[in-house]
Design a binder for these strands. Structure first.
Lengths: 260, 260
DNA sequence: CGACTTATTGACAACCGTCAAGACTCGTGG
DNA sequence: CCACGAGTCTTGACGGTTGTCAATAAGTCG
């Protein structure tokens, strides 16, 4: 896994000056922080952002433990945040899809506690942290909207935590697949029974706390039982009901409900 | 475990009308949401709160899945939030100490995704959600401060998640013990090598994703190796260095750093 | 073609869960 | 005062789930 420095990686296919473009027509606005903002607030936010940065697959967006000078909104592509344990093993905390924010765990602190890395090529809306925080201290709607985003994020982590703590291997994998599919559906990025899923088995393993080998066995079981197939970057859900039954899936935690 | 309805339980030792008392002298202010607020903002918040509610040990503060009409700040005592899996097993998500907020995961949504239950007797500062959210939409400092609180909370969940995913039983237990001790130290509720810890082994088991029996074995190992002792509601850390080594502990995620 | 990554499978061992039993504490009631 | 029962802690035996190690297959890119 090649870890390019964010700046270097960023420059490789670098920032188009789309800062000029307004936030109102942003394709991910509906799923992002910006949804509830008024016209005036949006134009203020548009002045905060410094443009779009495009990173290649497998590049580092935020280095864990280092100072994070910007927050990001994914305009396109997949990423994940992760912790590295003292003995070098990796735990994926969350997968990030278009409209998600990166770096929210750095707010209110100096260093980013966790690293963020791209999976596919990713286009990021760059929001320099000092300027964004200044604006949030002035615009209550933005700050509250931000709090709602973090709160939803927290709920997803809690759900994953319950999964790792109290479910067997195949149930954990099934739960993750259902979650990703549901989140893609919300964004119109999935059919009712299938979607593109650019994850390696190693990603899934690190997300659900299993080894790659055992994750493979769990996926094989799901396939053998006719529940779901993950192949060539595409997930197909053959028996949604059985997957839900197996994993104890409940989509309530994904419904961010009534943002202002 | 007797589950009294919060209102009923609340009435049993009921709300002293300490709403009159200002928030400025609040003992937990230094560790709570309120820390960065100005004099004027504090007095507005004081008008939001409806008083203090006292609950007995083992009573339910928030029912998972039900509508949450208030947020709370713990003034005194221990509580925990938890998820219940489909097959009835419990996963403790977080332990809550004086100054912590309860119900933050309900912000921006209608129902509380997870339940909250008291461990000891608990005194709660009650903040009705509609009034608090109205104030947050007006007062940017409060909303931003709230976002920082949620973000810190999220970091703690992420750390626990990495623990469950990538650490062995005794390391998970050691990590939890170190975290609780560190959080108590921040509040002046612990000595450098020991503290009161009113947890049953079942609480620890449900927090780190183990059975009670195996948690007991892990605790026995820590005791046998001379690392830590948990006995009669008191935790003693005999060899902090070895505990840190074993669990990969790093306290960076607890440092909420520079709130405004 | 050869190096590399990823997926897959098998054998075996370690870890952890399950089940069962006993010890200890504490409050209650006789 | 003691007996009793409930809740918690502790220990042992055993089995299942998962991790480890190793090898192979399949695909990708130079």
């Amino acid at each position: 896994m090649d870890r390019l420095h964010p700046v270097v990686a960023g420059l490789s296919t670098t920032s188009r000056a789309s800062a000029i473009q307004g936030c109102e027509t942003c394709v991910v606005r509906r799923w992002s922080l910006c949804r509830p903002l008024s016209h005036d607030e949006l134009s203020e936010l548009a002045r905060v952002r410094t443009g779009t940065r495009v990173l290649g697959p497998g590049s580092s967006v935020i280095e864990g433990g280092e100072e994070a000078d910007a927050l990001f909104v994914i305009e396109n592509g997949w990423a994940f945040s992760h912790a590295i344990t003292a003995d070098g093993r990796r735990q994926i905390l969350e997968f990030h899809l278009p409209g998600d924010m990166l770096g929210i765990e750095a707010v209110g602190r100096v260093e980013a506690p966790h690293g963020v890395e791209t999976i596919t090529e990713v286009a990021l809306c760059v929001l320099p942290r000092p300027r964004l925080e200044t604006l949030m201290r002035r615009e209550a709607t933005l700050a509250f909207s931000f709090a709602c985003v973090v709160s939803r994020d927290r709920a997803m982590l809690a759900e994953r935590l319950a999964s790792l703590g109290r479910r067997a291997a195949s149930a954990r994998v099934a739960h993750l697949l259902l979650e990703l599919h549901a989140r893609l559906m919300q964004r119109g990025m999935a059919e009712h029974d299938n979607c593109a899923l650019p994850l390696k088995q190693a990603h899934i393993a690190d997300a659900v706390g299993l080894t790659v080998e055992h994750t493979n066995r769990a996926l094989a079981e799901l396939r053998r039982e006719g529940l779901a197939t993950l192949r060539d970057g595409r997930l197909t859900l053959h028996d949604r009901r059985a997957l839900i039954e197996l994993s104890g899936w409940d989509d309530a935690y994904l419904k961010s409900a009534r943002l202002p």
